[in-house]
């Protein structure tokens, strides 16, 4: 499944669905894992950047989708989430 980003919060439009080609995710490896191990597991071409203990920012030029990443990491006790956007209030 592709990541559909809903812009309703900004646009007030519940139907608007556009897809971004690039995507970023955070992986928390819980005491195990390394950049090379992550690269092996996710298979896709990506930039992997450590951002603190056991946490990595993964940048994809082409979004593989969260479902696929979850499947690839199924054997690992890692947590993955989109690199979510926040905004000034």
């Amino acid at each position: 499944m592709k990541i559909f980003i809903l812009f309703f919060a900004i646009m007030g439009n519940l139907n608007a669905q556009i897809h971004r080609k690039k995507a970023e995710y955070l992986i928390t490896t819980n005491q195990s894992g390394s950049e090379s191990e992550i690269a092996t597991v996710i298979r896709e071409k990506a930039e992997i950047k450590p951002i603190g203990s056991n946490r990595y920012l993964i940048k994809f030029e082409e979004d593989p989708g969260l479902d696929k990443l979850n499947r690839l990491m199924k054997s690992k006790k890692w947590l993955i989430q989109p690199n979510l956007k926040s905004h000034k209030f």
Partner: peptide, 28 residues
């Protein structure tokens, strides 16, 4: 606009460097 990554690193930095209070006028 910020991201999970930038904000999480920011919080961790503040805690590691002795902040007693963190102000976060942001959200999602």
């Amino acid at each position: 606009s910020g991201t999970s990554a930038s904000i999480v690193q920011g919080i961790d930095f503040a805690v590691a460097n002795g902040a007693k209070i963190i102000n976060m006028s942001l959200g999602g």
